[in-house]
Each structure stands twice: as C-alpha cells, then as structure tokens.
Design a binder for these strands. Structure first.
Length: 828
DNA sequence: GCAAGGTC
C-alpha cells in the first residue's frame, strides 16, 4: 500500500480525486479523513502536527530565570495527537510513502515532520517527495511521474526559525512580564514579527503626537467658456523656490492679495492647454495581501475577510486563500473559467462580454511563487441562499477581480488648462474615462470624472465665485489594518498566513485599541524598552537576517547549529545588559499599565480612579488609593470598556465606551451615570407583592446606567422587567387592560418606539427568544433559506446534521456540497 | 501561560 500525505484534508481529497479518476472511497480514522483507491491511501495533516517547546521543568515562570531559556533544550512534541496516531497506523501498513505537502519552505518542514513519524514506525520503506504548485490534473500527474527526495536542508532552515522564534520570544516575554509583575493572562509579549509590527504603529503615533500643524491658504475660482452652462473649478498655483508647482500659500498677506485681485477681475486668459491620453491597466491577480486590501476597501476587517475566504474555499467556490503568487498557472484556462459564469443572473453578462474579446491575456503581478495559485474562483457558483450576504459579496469580489485580470485596459483623457489673471495663474485638471475597459466588470475603483471643456490658448474665460480656504496641515494618518499588512509584506515580516493574525494578537495583548489600531501606553513602553535594550526584536532587520541565514542553511552553506548558536550568543549579550535594568524597566511598564486604566481624579481622595476587573471578570471603576479609599463606581455589565479621549467637564473623568460588537455603546462619565441613578415615575401595583405589601412598580435607573421597571420594595421584592438603555421614556395615559399598567413610548432617534405595557413587552420578548427557530442558524453562512432547505431533507437541528452522511445531504439538498456539510459538522 | 508558523 502506498501512503500519500498532504498538508491539509482538502488537498488530500482533491489529490485522491485526480489520482483515482474520481473512484476513491473515504473513511474516518480517529476523526481524520482517509481516502483510498487501488492500493493507495491519502491522508491530510492540519499544517504542523508537531511543535517545539521547552522541557516541562522550564514551565513555571517563577522558578526559572528567563536567561536560562537561552540554553535550554528544545523538544518536539505532537500537537495534533489524533492525526499523528492515524499517520502511525497507516505508515505501519505502507510499503511506500509519498510526501505531497505544500510547495514552500514551511511545507518542506511539515513534510519532514511527517517523514519522521513514518520513519519511527517503519524503518524500511522508501519515502519520496512530490511538488506541485496547484492541484490540477496536469501538475499533479507530472509531479507523480517524476518524484523527488525531501529537501532536508530546506526543512532545517524552517527548524532554525522555529527554535530562534521560541527562544527569543519566550525569554524576552518572560523577562518583561516578570519585571512588571504581570503573570497570568496579562503577560507582556515580545516577538520577531509582532514587535516590529507594533513599532510601526508606535512610530506613527509618535509622529502624530509630535506634529505641529501649520496654517495655509488655498484659492479657487469658477471659470466658464463662452456661453457654456457649466462652469469648471480652477485652483490658484505658483512656482516655489525649486520651481515646482505649489498650491498652498503659507503667508496670509499674500493669500489675501491674490484673493482680492482675483475677486476684482471677471475674466481670465487661457495660456496653456495640455491634453494627454493615459492607459489604466487592469489590476493583477489576487494574492492574500491584495485580497485583504480590496476587501477592506468594501468594509471588511482583515480578520473577517480571511475568515469568509476560508469558508468560501472549504465550500469549493474559490481557490486557496493563503498565497503569495500573483501569476496564474499555465493550466488555468481563462476562457473555460469564464464559460462557467455564462448565463448566471448576476455575473453572466460580464463573463459573456469578456468572452467576446479576440484574445484573452491575463495580467501578471511581480510575485511568481510555487506555493499556490493566485486566489480565483473555481467555477463552482453558490446560489444566493447557500451563502450569507457577506459571503456572496466577497465571492463576487473574487470573481470580479478574476474578470478584471482578463479584461481590457481602460483609457482616460486628461486635460490640463492654465489660465492667467494679471500675474496670477489658475489651473484645472480635467479627466474623462473614454474607454471604461476593466472598470465595467470591476466596479470597486473610483472612476469619478472631472469636467473641463475643450479650449485653445488665448481663449477668454469668465471668472466667478472666487473662494479662499484656510486650512491646516494634517498629521500623518494612522495605519489601517490593510495598509499595515501591506507594509509588513513590503518589509518581509510575517507570512501570508500569519500577518492578519499578528494584528489580532496586538489587540488581544492590549497593545492596540480601536480601528484603525491606536497604540496603548503599554505598547509605547514595551517598544521603548525594546529599543533601549533589545533593539533587534523590534526591528524588521531581525527577520531579514533570519531569511538570509535560512537561505544559507537551505543552500548547504551553513548548518542549523551555526545559525541557532549565533542567535543564542546575541540574546546572551542582550540579557547581560537587561539584568541591571530590570527594576527600572518594570517601573516603566507598571506605570504605563496604570496610564491605560486611568480615568481621572477620585472625588473622595484625589488619587486616580482606574478601570479594574473583579475576580468574577466584570469591570468596575476603583480607586488607586484602595484599601485606604474604598470609592467604587459600577460599569455596564455588557462589553469591554474602552477609555475615550474626551473628559467629562464636571468631574474631569474620561468617558467610557463599552465595546460589544454590534451592541457597542458610549456609557459616558461613570460618575455622572452614578449620580443620575434613581427612581422615576410610579407605574402601578407590583404584581408580586402589591396585594400583600403595597409594593409598586417604578421606572428605575441604576448606577451602571441600565434601566428597568422594578419594585419600590427592592431588595425585599426582586420583581423586575427590562427597559432599553437609551432614549427618553414617556409614560402615556393609555393603560394595559390585562396588567393595569401604562403603555410606554421610548423616544430615541427619529421614530418613537411604542414599547407598550412593560409586562406584555417582556412576555413577547421571551416568546421571540424561545422561538428563534433552528440552532442550525448558529453556523457561519447559514441563513433562513438554507435552514428551510435542510429541514426539507429532514435535518432540523445540529444533532441531525452531525449524524447525517455529507454525500447524502449533498444529493438531497440543491446547491449544498458535501464539503460544506463536512465543514459544518466539524464546527458543530 | 511565552513565538511564529501551519491549519479549521
């Protein structure tokens, strides 16, 4: 039996399909899919199935000096035990093994991990390596016709990276965390990729903080040709000392003088007309970074874009979304792929128009790699009910990007007109899209035109509407997530698979907040400490050097030991300097941690009020003077508090926003909220204790800002009904007959909300909650329509789905693939 | 519990 090993299950199934001509059987072993046909078995790993770590005697942070980690052993342990176990079982029975992991450095290392597991249980059998950059008939067949050997040097290069990353990351992370006394969940982390990325953000913030705005003026006027109805806008410009065109006037007196002259005149003379035609070439195929950039332009965060792309990939609609490649492989036939869209209601017209071209030549980007093809549609098209709106939008983006790469260039006509008024000059830049080209199938770019009429030198124009605008120079803008990912790629930091996760990590570690990401004081302090004592770890140079060293290992010019030994020595030196400054670094970090939590002065004692977390995990405001000062203020129970920049005028406390996804809201000043607390109007008798104890229901506002209808005898009577957090509550004269309570109206925004009797309202709310239908809707991308379709096939709950045979479901339900069912099962 | 790299 021949055992074929791929990097992921999806690749294993597609390989089996190609090699078996579609005749393979599948079974499951330890929760791992095994594909079998004619004496061959194919199994997919899940990326790395083993990982590096220190021996267990190093695991207690307090018992080990961080510096000891530098010379500690580094062990490999199984991280996916079920997969490793399955691989062992299959390897015992095999008489040959073929490694078919991805065709890149990390793939070679994952292949070597599989190699070692196979060798452990079977010393005899030949183990070979096949390489292909896309899983297509041609590539796969020719790879298997000419198998190769595993490249152990290349794999060793990857291992050197693993060891260096672990040692530097763990030793420095533990050092900073211990110095600041931050153990447990809130440790202070440092790493070869995250720290240079954080430094990018911090450096930009430093520029913003140091920015000193300057005032300048810009002048505009409307020009009109002859009897034309439309005017066009022109801007004043001059030649600066370097003879460059400049529009900003830095001297107010000069600006006023120009303004007055222009205002007094009613005509301008055309002195220069310059027309040119510009070709606007279609965009190149999507790699991961460019895909994230395009998705972010239509409103998706990097994380969300990748998560949707992964789902579309698993469902079989698009190719693998983690790729560096921007050149389509030879065996992608664009016409064949376009054909798949012909006749489709939303995408068919574009495909048909593209097929009319005499010749179809796709664009190419600069990166041609062997890992995977650029991201493109597979030709399988989901029906709208199959996928969520977001998934469809991202799918359409990928399809249209493919369309754009095989479309014609667009052509713009630019027309620059310069007109003179006395010694002053005005210019107007016109542009017109004369050939829309690829823009017709790819509507995501701005194609705004600017009208300027045909003119000749010497033409007289009428001059109206002169305007002067006072402006200020702006600080540089913060990096957005996708710009950050592009910059990381430019600097060679991180990989296509990790860059977006690294940004998530910065959020999780408390280093950045909001979007675009803004660094916390802790982040500034960590970067500062690293710059002072371990500059390497915040510099992209560390990755550049590591890449060079890995190349040397791969070429046989250096060994893994050479490279890791040298790296260990460098880290030893860093620790020699760090040791003396441990207390000083710790003080700085602790101070910045407090800065990130500070709201303002405590009204009781003058110390700082801080956002704190209770043992149960809920947030509240407490005084830094505790236990001497026991002043506290509550915070809302939903969400994670984010301290805003603006302060409450009355108390000098920063306002607080509660981050809770879609339910995010501004809480405001916690002290104002606490002072607003109290009992509002009485509504009627309490249904629980009104008869017995004369309890009454009242509208109440709690110190945390939440509102409810509750009994005046609280805490003796705990009867309560929920009310919305926002809006003014009006108590009307209408009364509910059943409960004898007034109907309520909530005023917020434009439309008043007729909440009605609070008891009826709560009962309706509860009824809706218990009737939210199927738990199937909890799955990503499953909407009401899909639930209905699944119900028709007898699948009404997650349990039903887990028990179902994916292939049978695919047969029964239109537009749902077995792959998708498997994904759901895995998630359920 | 530390990193970064795969993958889900």
């Amino acid at each position: 039996m021949e055992l074929i090993i791929t990097e992921k299950d999806n690749a294993a199934r597609r390989l089996a399909d190609i090699l078996s001509g579609g005749t393979f059987d599948s079974s499951r072993e330890n929760g791992v899919n095994v594909y079998e046909w004619g004496g061959k078995r194919c199994v997919g790993l899940s990326g790395h199935v083993v990982g590096v770590d220190f021996p267990s005697e190093y695991s207690d942070w307090r018992d080990v000096e961080p510096v000891e980690l530098i010379d500690a052993d580094v062990e490999k342990t199984a991280t996916k035990e079920n997969i490793v176990a399955t691989l062992r079982i299959l390897a015992r029975k095999a008489n040959r093994a073929t490694i078919a992991t991805d065709y890149d450095r990390e793939g070679e290392l994952i292949g070597k991990e599989a190699y070692e597991i196979v060798r452990e249980v079977n010393e005899e059998i030949p183990i070979r390596r096949v390489r292909f950059s896309s899983i297509t008939e041609n590539e796969v067949q020719s790879a298997f016709e000419e198998p190769d050997e595993l490249d152990f040097d290349l794999a060793a290069a990857g291992e050197a990276r693993q060891i260096i990353d672990l040692i530097w990351g763990a030793a420095l992370t533990r050092f900073l965390s211990l110095s600041a006394g931050q153990l447990g969940n809130d440790f202070i982390s440092v790493g070869r990729v995250q720290s240079p990325t954080l430094k990018l953000i911090v450096d930009r913030e430093r520029e913003i903080e140091a920015f000193d705005p300057e005032t300048y003026w810009e002048l505009f006027a409307d020009l009109r040709k002859g009897d034309d109805v439309d005017t066009f806008e022109a801007q004043y410009f001059y030649r600066d000392e370097d003879d460059n065109e400049a529009e900003r006037v830095w001297d107010e007196a000069v600006a006023s003088e120009v303004y007055e002259t222009l205002s007094e005149r009613d005509a301008a003379t055309v002195v220069d007309v310059n027309g040119r035609t510009r070709t606007d070439t279609p965009p190149t195929p999507f790699n991961t970074t460019q895909f994230i950039r395009a998705a972010s332009a239509i409103g998706y965060s990097a994380k969300r874009a990748m998560s949707i792309a992964e789902d579309l990939y698993t469902a079989g609609y698009i190719t693998y979304p983690r790729t560096d490649n921007t050149v389509y492989p030879d065996d992608l036939d664009p016409e064949e792929l376009l054909d798949d869209f012909v006749g489709h209601s939303a995408l068919g017209d574009a495909a048909e128009s593209l097929l009319e071209a005499d010749e179809i030549v796709p664009t190419e980007g600069d990166e041609e790699t062997t890992d995977h093809p650029p991201i493109h549609p597979t030709g399988e098209i989901p029906t709208r009910g199959d996928v969520s709106d977001d998934e469809w939008e991202v799918f359409e983006l990928v399809v249209r990007r493919f369309f754009a790469t095989v479309a014609e260039a667009a052509v713009w006509e630019h027309l620059k007109v310069v007109a003179e008024v006395d010694d002053y000059r005005l210019k107007a830049n016109g542009k017109r899209l004369v050939e829309p080209g690829y823009h017709e199938v790819y509507p995501y770019f701005n194609t705004t035109e600017n009208f300027v009429p045909e003119l000749d030198e010497g033409d007289e124009l009428s001059l109206t509407e002169v305007e002067i605008e006072e402006k200020e120079t702006q600080p540089p803008r913060r990096y957005g997530q996708s710009r950050l990912i592009e910059t990381m790629e430019d600097l060679g930091v991180g990989t296509k698979s990790t860059r977006h996760n690294i940004i998530e990590k910065l959020y999780d570690r408390g280093y950045v907040e909001s979007d675009p990401p803004r660094p916390t004081r802790l982040a500034m302090a960590v970067v500062e400490a690293a710059e002072d004592y371990a500059d390497r770890v915040v510099s992209e140079g560390m990755t550049a050097q590591l890449e060079a060293d890995m190349d040397a290992i791969a070429n046989g010019e250096a060994t893994l030991e050479d490279v890791t030994d040298e790296s260990r020595e460098m880290l030893e030196e860093i620790f020699a300097n760090l040791a003396e400054s441990r207390d000083e670094i710790g003080d700085q970090l602790r101070k910045s941690l407090k800065d990130d939590k500070r709201l303002g002065p405590c009204p009781d004692c003058g110390e700082d009020l801080l956002v704190r977390r209770s043992r149960h995990g809920s947030y509240f405001v407490g005084c830094d003077g505790y236990p001497d000062c026991e002043n506290t203020l509550p915070l809302p129970s939903t969400g994670k508090p984010l301290i805003q920049e603006n302060e409450c005028e009355e108390h000098g406390l920063n306002e607080v926003k509660m981050l809770a996804g879609r339910q995010t809201f501004v809480h405001g000043c916690p002290l104002c909220k606490a002072e607003d607390a109290g009992e509002g109007p009485i509504l009627g008798a309490c249904p629980d204790c009104g008869d017995e104890h004369d309890g009454e229901l009242a509208v109440k506002t709690l110190q945390s800002g939440s509102r409810l209808v509750g009994c005046t005898r609280y805490p003796d009577c705990e009867y309560s009904l929920p009310l919305p957090r926002r809006g003014d509550i009006e108590v009307t004269d209408e009364r509910c007959e059943e409960h004898d309570l007034p109907e309520l109206v909530v005023h917020s925004g434009d439309e008043p909300w007729e909440l009605g009797c609070p008891i009826c309202n709560y009962q309706e709310f509860q009824a809706r909650e218990s009737d939210t239908g199927s738990d199937l809707e909890a799955l990503d991308g499953v909407g009401a329509k899909t639930v209905e379709k699944l119900a028709d096939a007898g699948i009404e709950s997650l349990d039903d789905l887990t028990d179902a045979d994916p292939d049978a479901v695919a047969d029964d339900v239109d537009g749902i693939s077995a792959d998708r069912v498997r994904t759901w099962q895995a998630k359920a």
